[in-house]
Each structure stands twice: as structure tokens, then as C-alpha cells.
Design a protein around this nucleic acid. Structure first.
Length: 874
RNA sequence: GCGAGAGUGGCGGAACUGGCAGACGCGCUGGACUUAGGAUCCAGUGGGUAACUCCGUAGGGGUUCAACUCCCCUCUCUCGCACCA
């Protein structure tokens, strides 16, 4: 018995003591040990803003429970932490307060590290990663050079998303609702030459592997699929009458080709300048590019020839056609595309129906409501007769010819009020009429290819990743520009290209690197002549795309490339990450980039897997007063305050108890009090019973039969608790219910007063069980009390307790008796009773007899161990 | 608009393959101890009713001996994508 156990629970004292003890003994240090099963548990590393917030606390508490639990289950656990240390806030601080980004960042890291350690998380700091250090970003540069060699990095002049506030470009993924993901300023388009990584090379691979990502939330996988955005269709060439020009359009609905009544090109399409003489008009379309509120276009004065039917149809420039998707040109089928329909209505362009719903003739309900009999599907070749709305009292507008370029069409205002975009049967489509649209898509695609009119293609929404940032605090892109040799990569042996520290931050003009002559001017590695360094730095998402790889090795300077080539490298032991935990906001940013980088490593022959994260848990947000915590809303809870008032164990316990990890957590100050009370109560029980708890052993299975039923109940409850806590953790980390059953056990312990030595043994067993099961959640108090009842320190080095099904089994169960599905009575019955026995006992029950009275019993259903339902007649 | 998820007491949330709705915690009510309690402990707590009992898982229908759970329709909320041809 430890004499020093105090009467009052003082979390500050307990926690600091044990944190010191653990860190002095370096207990979280991880080493490769191939005889043990490994478990790589990773939480998304933070940006070192200087303060941890409740989101971090929750994220890392979840990870720490998993890490500690897996350790107790005998796994060799890698649980590292680091710093996503490059980024704009550091640079803004430099401009505003004159402190160097490096100094600012390192101070923040020190501060946050203290806070994180005060939470008692079990990190192996010997693998700490800090991305702004040359020994780390050197390998960003190495990755870049490898990609350059493989043609996966290239330089391109293009329109880019420009954030005027951050003064830099953004990748597509980093633009949210046309605003910057970080500062929420409106993003504008600007033409700029910059470096791209060819993530599109892996579009198909990334997409197909989505089907295998069983350990990821379906939601995230779906978001990735949608982001990659695969669509299959055809590209078709349309001649432009009276010119040598032709335009190539992309469509996924080649089954509607016969319904095209015009074609459109994007305002930035090269043809626009050549075809349109009204430059002012063209300017107006361009000004409305990307605006959702109106369809706006301009007739070019030219006509294109539909190669399927040789029809002559007008060519428009339209603001809703995107240059960056497909070919930047489309065919427009107003009858079957809502956007085209709206455009056609506005510019009075004819509409031609070429698909009718398949079930139209069979839909009797539909027909019954119609005042006029449904028109036949086809009235001879090419005649349209489709009334879209069953309640439409107007007969279908008769076919009429408009504009003089042949074919039967309906006026825009006529029969239909919206486009019919679903599948159906083709009409007015020449030799393809009568086919189902899905079949027609295949046949028309084949026809187009066979006749040299175009080709089948696959399109992706995914764009290449623009990584150039016109900012200082990031990884320098390792290339130089030589007057003689052009773009020259910095040789690997010269890496890292160090980010110079002696630069000035004015906040005006471009990157400070442009003014750093020492950095800027260099010699060409190829010809030795004068050369200028690239001044753009890399997007910080590059840093986080492979940091999980770096954790596999000790911190500091290493030769990553040769480490990776070593056949028995630590990487091969630890990777992939078994459990990754973080916010869902990175569903398509960081997580997609990381999958991309892992594939690059694979194709460099350095690893033999494709997916970095086997299991992903996206934790919900921390909410207070119905909104996400934010400074502007004034609803933030400061973790430091919690630490001071309640301690880490309480803060952790409540974050895990209030909701399952994947759901949003509603913060409640009162709820925190509840968690604190629980720990106090546990402390109080151990303190009060410090004498009785000195009785050790004897809680063996054989002795169980000598227990009084009083003690047996607690013994049984202990085993049930082990079982429930274990299965709840295993079943998608439902810590909230695990903690709830721990509370139940503590409630039972509270009302237990040991009388005999056997009682005391059971009592001790129950307490030890609580402490072991609680230790991943609230490790300090568990450790303190563990030692206080006479054990050696190191509770998380103990084995996770195992339950005994025999001991957990109830002797009696409460049988629920229903009559016609309604609860009428309850009865205690012995466990092993047969179905017939149960039936008999239920029917003997006095209350049941009364209810049944003279009614006939039609059926009796017995659910083993649960209930009896007696079904009666009337 | 499309896609995903969710709607359960006063609140956060339980209920594993259909089988006692509301575990656990908060709050509330009453009591004990106390100079005092916003400390602690004990008891109670979905709603209606004096009671038998009845009504209750967003709303409406259905399947079933039995539905929070399965099926159909409607509504609401959250998140993601959003002129992607």
C-alpha cells in the first residue's frame, strides 16, 4: 500500500508527477521489433499556431486511446507527432510584428509541445517531424526532382486561382466556394506560369483503388471519387461551314446527338477570337464567364455541320461552357439538357425531342389522368409527339419547322417546360431510332469511331496540382533558370536548396526571395554560367503528403533515399499507417495528395504498396452553442483553462464520453463537471478502502464458487465490463459507451461493502479492472491509483484484461412476457430453461392468465433468453 | 439541383444480426449531512392518468406475433459537390 495516497484528488499534482516519470524513462520510445505485430497509429499533425484548441484535444485523445489500447493488447505501436511548420501565418506575423517566421514558428512549436505533453499523450518524440527544417524539406526537393525526371513535374502557363489576400496561387482543391480555403478572400483568375505535379497521371489508379478502401468512411471515398470525376463519352468533330475550321466537342450523351440544335464554345476558346467579329460582344460573354445567375451567349454568325445528320446548326459563344473541362466546346441538346434548354429559351432556338421515356406506354396511372389519349410514340419518321406533363391540358404542339435548317422541331415555348435528362427510347434519330438510350450510346460511339467522326474518350474533373506559391515561408523549388540551358534542375547532391534566413519582410511587392541577391543569383549546374534561382516555393500540402513516411525513421538528418532502398528498412515494417485520425476537411486535399505521393514512391520502386492509410477515422467537429467553435463567435473553450481547472484526465474523458468519435461533439461545461465527478468518486472509493484493498490475489476462477451471491454479482459485473469495453473499442472505437459501462461498474463498486477476505479479493479485482480499462482514457489517475493499491508503476505496460465468458454469464435472466406484442409481465427464470419450460412458466403466471382469460391461444413465440410473446385470438 | 449522413426525454447520447425504447452522463425534483452549499451522499425523473392502463423514436402508410431498427411516400436539418456537357 502506498502510504502517500492523498484524501483529495488533485489532478495537477498527480498528472505532472506521472508525466515526469514517464518522460524520464522514455516509455513511449518505439523500436523496430519484427517479432511483434506492429501498429502504426497516426493523427494529423498540427500547424504550429501556438495554441492547441479543442479540435486537437479531441483528435489526439482519440488517437492516444487507440495507441495505448493497442500497446496493452501486445502490439508494437508507432505513435508519432510533428509539426506542419511551413505556412502563411508565420510570414504574416513577420510582416506585422517584425519577428522572423522561423523564430515565430519554433517558439510556437515549443509552446504547443508543452501543451500537448501536458495532456499526457503517449508520443515518441524521437521521431518528431518539423517540416520547415532543411533536413526535412530537402526531401520535398528530392521528391520534386524525381518527379521532374519522370515527367510528373512540369512547368506550364495557365490561368490559375489567385488569392489577392495571400498574394499567391491556389490549387483547385484549395478553392472553396470561389474563396480561399485559408483566408476566405474571393479568388480571382490570373494568368501565370507555374509548376504542376501530374496527379492526373494517377487519376484512374486513384479512382479504382477507391473500391478497395474498406477502412475509410464511405463519405470520404465518395468525395474522392467525385473529385476525380470520371466520365466516359465521345469527342466529335463538327465542321464549321464556310471555313477550314472545325470544332471538337465532348459529350457523354452521344445518344442525343440527333437532338443537337446548336453548338457552343467557351468564351476563352481559341476559335472564339477567330470566328467572332463583334469583339465587344465577346468581351461581354467573357465578363459573365463562370456566373451561375444567367445564361449568356453570342451568336458567332457561323454554322456547324452535325456529322450525324449533316444538319446545319448555329455556333454560339456561351458563358456557361468551361474551357478547362473536356474540349471547351459542346453540342447543345435543349430537349435533354437543362442548361441548353434555358439557353435555347432565352435565344429562341428550336428544341427537338430525341428521347422519350421508356415506360410511357405502360404507365397506366399516368394514362388514367390524361384527358386526351396519349399520342403514339412514333408518327412516322422523325415526328415528335411528346407531352411532358400529364396534367397538361394543351395538346402537344404540332411539329413545326423553324429557322430553315431542316428536321422536325418544337418551338422553345411549345410543348416542354424543362429538359428530359433521363434514359429512354430514341426517336428522330435516323437509324438509331427505337433503341434504348444506354444501348444507343454504345452504338453511336462505335459508329462515330468507325466512320472517323471522332473517338471515345474518358474525361476527369481532376486537374494537375499547381504547387508554386509566390511566398517565402516554404520549400524552395530546386531549379535554376540559365540563359544558355534554360530550366535546369538542381542536382541531387546539391540539395537542400536552403531557404535564406536574412531576408526582409515588407508585405509589399512579391516574395522576399526576389530581393535576396545571395539566393537569387547562382551558377548553372550544367554550363557554369550565370543563372537565376526559382523564387517560388512549394505548396505546404507537399510537406504533409509524405510526412507519415518520415516518422518511420529517427528524427534529424538522414539519407532518406538510401534508407528507403534498404530491404529491411523501418519503413517496410511500419507502413502503411494502420489507423489514421483527423478532420474530414482534408477529405480531398491532404488525403488525396498523400495517396498520390505514395504511388509515386511505389513507381520509383521504393515501396510495394499503394495506399498510405489502411483505416481512416474522421472525427466530428467540436460544437458549442450550436456552432463550430470560433473566435468570431466567441464560443471557444480554452484547453489550458480545462487543464488548470480539471486536469488532462477529465478533459480527455469528457471529449471521449460526450459523443462517438465520428460525430460532432456538443461541448458542455456541465458535462465536464460530470466527468470530473466520476474520477473524484473513483479516487474516493480507493481512498476509503485503502485497507481492504491490501488483500491481494484469490480472485481465481475456482474460488468464484465459494463466493457469496453478493460478491459474485460484482465479480460477474467486472467480467461483463471487460467484455463490453473491449468490444466497444473494437467496434469502431465507440468510447462513449465503453466509458458508460465503466461508470456502471464504478457505481456497483460504490455500493459494495466487503465483509470477508473473499469479498475483499473480489473488490480488489473490480478496482483493478476499472483502472486497467480506464487507463487508455485517463492514464494519470489510473497510474496513480494502480500504484496506490500496491502495484508497480507502468499500468499501460500491463496486459489488457481478458474476460471469462463463464464468469460473465448471468445465472438468471429476466424473461419478458408479452401478450399480442405488448409487455404484460416479467419473470426471473434460470438460464438454461428449455423453450417448452419457458412457455409453461409464462402461461402459469397469474397476471397472464387473467389477461388471456377465455381467449384462444393461437401461437406462442419464444425468443431464447429474452422474451415470450403469446398471440391470442379474440 | 445532385450526392452522403442524420432526425429518439428538458439536454448530450444508448439500444450489437427486428425482441423490455430512453443505458451512461447532464439537468431537474425531493431528502440527508451542514452555519452555509453552486460540495458530498441517498431516492426519484419520457408524457397523460387517482388508478387499470393508454400514448410515445420527424410525419404518413406498409411488412411482421413483434419495428427506433426492414420497405414506400412526405417533411426538416447538417455536410460535401455544384453550369463537369
Amino acid at each position: 500500500m502506498k502510504v502517500s495516497l492523498e484524501e483529495r484528488y488533485d489532478p495537477q499534482k498527480v498528472e505532472v508527477t506521472w508525466q515526469k516519470y514517464w518522460s524520464e524513462r522514455n516509455l513511449y520510445k518505439t523500436e523496430l521489433n519484427t517479432s511483434l505485430k506492429k501498429f502504426y497509429c497516426l493523427e494529423m499533425f498540427p500547424y504550429p499556431s501556438g495554441e492547441i484548441h479543442m479540435g486537437h484535444v479531441r483528435n489526439y485523445a482519440i488517437g492516444d486511446v487507440i495507441a495505448r489500447y493497442k500497446r496493452m493488447r501486445g502490439y508494437n505501436v508507432l505513435h508519432p507527432m510533428g509539426w506542419d511548420a511551413f505556412g502563411l501565418p508565420a510570414e504574416n506575423a513577420a510582416i506585422k510584428h517584425g519577428v522572423h517566421p522561423s523564430e515565430w514558428t519554433h517558439k510556437n512549436i515549443d509552446k504547443m509541445k508543452r501543451q500537448i505533453n501536458r495532456m499526457g499523450f503517449s508520443y515518441d518524440w524521437e521521431r518528431e517531424v518539423t517540416t520547415c527544417r532543411p533536413e526535412y524539406y530537402k526531401w520535398n526537393q528530392w521528391f520534386f526532382l524525381k518527379m521532374l525526371q519522370k515527367g510528373l513535374a512540369y512547368r506550364k502557363d495557365s490561368y490559375v486561382n489567385w488569392c489577392p489576400s495571400c498574394g499567391t496561387v491556389l490549387a483547385n482543391e484549395q478553392v472553396i466556394d470561389e474563396k480561399c480555403w485559408r483566408c476566405e478572400s474571393n479568388v480571382v483568375q490570373r494568368e501565370l506560369e507555374q509548376w504542376f505535379l501530374k496527379i492526373t497521371h494517377y487519376a484512374e489508379d486513384l479512382l479504382q483503388a477507391c473500391d478497395e478502401m474498406k477502412g475509410w468512411p464511405e463519405k470520404v471515398v465518395t468525395m474522392q471519387r467525385n473529385w476525380i470525376g470520371k466520365s466516359t463519352g465521345v469527342e466529335v468533330d463538327f465542321r464549321i461551314e464556310g471555313t477550314e475550321e472545325k470544332m471538337r466537342i465532348f459529350t457523354t450523351r452521344q445518344d442525343t446527338l440527333f437532338g443537337a440544335t446548336f453548338v457552343c464554345i467557351a468564351p476563352m476558346h481559341p476559335l472564339a477570337d477567330r470566328l467572332v467579329s463583334d469583339k465587344e460582344g465577346l468581351g461581354k460573354v467573357r465578363a459573365r464567364y463562370g456566373r451561375m445567375d444567367e445564361k449568356y451567349g453570342l451568336f458567332t454568325g457561323f454554322y456547324a455541320i452535325n456529322p450525324m445528320n449533316n444538319e446545319k446548326i448555329p455556333v454560339y459563344v456561351a458563358n456557361f461552357v468551361l474551357m478547362e473541362y473536356g474540349t471547351g466546346a459542346i453540342m447543345s441538346v435543349p430537349a435533354h439538357d437543362q442548361r441548353d434548354f434555358e439557353f435555347a429559351q432565352k435565344y429562341d432556338i428550336p428544341v427537338r425531342v430525341v428521347i422519350v421515356p421508356e415506360n410511357r406506354t405502360q404507365n397506366t396511372e399516368h394514362r388514367a389522368q390524361e384527358t386526351t389519349p396519349p399520342p403514339p410514340l412514333l408518327q412516322g419518321e422523325g415526328i415528335v409527339s411528346y407531352a411532358p406533363s400529364p396534367s397538361n391540358s394543351n395538346p402537344p404542339t404540332p411539329p413545326l419547322s423553324k429557322g430553315g435548317w431542316g428536321g422536325f422541331v418544337i418551338g422553345g415555348e411549345g410543348g416542354i417546360t424543362e429538359a428530359y435528362e433521363d434514359e429512354g427510347i430514341l426517336v428522330n434519330s435516323g437509324q438509331f431510332s427505337g433503341l434504348r438510350s444506354d444501348i444507343a450510346r454504345q452504338e453511336i460511339a462505335a459508329f462515330i469511331e468507325g466512320n472517323g467522326l471522332g473517338k471515345s474518350v474518358v474525361n476527369y474533373k481532376l486537374r494537375d496540382w499547381g504547387i508554386s506559391r509566390q511566398r517565402y515561408w516554404g520549400t524552395p523549388i530546386p531549379v535554376v533558370y540559365c540563359d544558355q540551358c534554360g530550366i535546369v534542375p538542381v542536382p541531387e547532391k546539391d540539395l537542400p536548396v536552403i531557404l535564406p534566413e536574412d531576408v526582409r519582410f515588407t508585405g509589399k511587392g512579391g516574395s522576399p526571395l526576389l530581393e535576396s541577391e545571395k539566393f537569387l543569383y547562382t551558377v548553372c549546374p550544367t554550363c557554369g554560367g550565370k543563372a537565376r534561382r526559382e523564387t517560388d516555393t512549394m505548396d505546404t500540402f507537399v510537406d504533409s503528403s509524405w510526412y507519415f513516411v518520415r516518422y518511420c525513421f529517427k528524427k534529424g538528418e538522414i539519407a532518406l533515399d538510401s534508407e528507403l532502398r534498404t530491404s529491411n528498412s523501418e519503413l517496410k515494417y511500419w507502413m502503411p499507417v494502420d489507423q489514421y485520425i483527423g478532420g474530414v476537411e482534408h477529405a480531398v486535399l491532404h488525403l488525396l495528395y498523400s495517396r498520390f505521393f505514395t504511388r509515386v514512391l511505389r513507381d520509383l520502386g521504393l515501396i510495394n504498396f499503394s495506399e498510405p492509410f489502411t483505416n481512416l477515422l474522421t472525427q466530428g467537429m467540436v460544437i458549442k452553442d450550436g456552432a463550430k467553435m470560433s473566435k468570431s463567435k466567441g464560443n471557444v473553450v480554452d484547453p489550458n483553462y480545462l487543464l488548470q481547472k480539471y486536469g488532462a484526465d477529465t478533459a480527455r474523458l469528457f471529449s471521449l464520453f460526450a459523443a462517438p468519435p465520428e460525430r460532432d461533439l456538443d461541448w458542455s461545461d456541465k458535462g465536464v463537471e460530470g466527468a470530473y465527478r466520476f474520477l473524484n468518486r473513483l479516487w474516493g472509493i480507493v481512498y476509503k478502502n485503502r485497507e481492504a484493498l491490501s488483500v491481494k490475489g484469490k480472485e481465481k476462477k475456482e474460488s468464484m464458487y465459494r463466493l457469496t451471491s453478493y460478491a459474485l454479482r460484482l465479480y460477474r459485473k467486472s467480467h461483463q465490463t471487460i467484455k463490453k469495453v473491449t468490444t466497444d473499442i473494437e467496434r469502431e472505437f465507440h468510447f462513449n459507451t465503453a466509458i458508460a459501462v465503466l461508470m456502471e461498474l464504478v457505481n456497483e463498486i460504490t455500493s459494495f461493502e466487503p465483509q470477508s477476505d473473499e469479498d475483499r479479493a473480489v473488490f480488489r479485482f473490480a478496482i483493478e479492472t476499472v483502472l486497467l480499462l480506464l487507463s487508455p482514457f485517463s492514464p494519470h489517475i489510473a497510474e496513480e491509483l494502480w500504484e496506490a493499491i500496491g502495484n508497480k508503476p507502468g499500468i499501460f505496460e500491463q496486459k489488457w484484461p481478458e474476460w471469462d465468458d463463464e464468469a460473465a454469464k448471468e445465472e438468471e435472466i429476466e424473461l419478458v412476457i408479452q401478450v399480442n406484442g405488448k409487455l404484460r409481465s416479467k419473470l426471473m427464470i434460470p438460464l438454461g430453461l428449455s423453450d417448452d419450460g419457458i412457455k409453461e412458466r409464462a402461461l402459469e403466471e397469474q397476471r397472464i392468465k387473467e389477461i388471456i382469460g377465455g381467449k384462444t391461444i393461437k401461437k406462442v413465440i419464444v425468443v431464447k433468453g429474452k422474451l415470450v410473446n403469446i398471440v391470442t385470438g379474440y
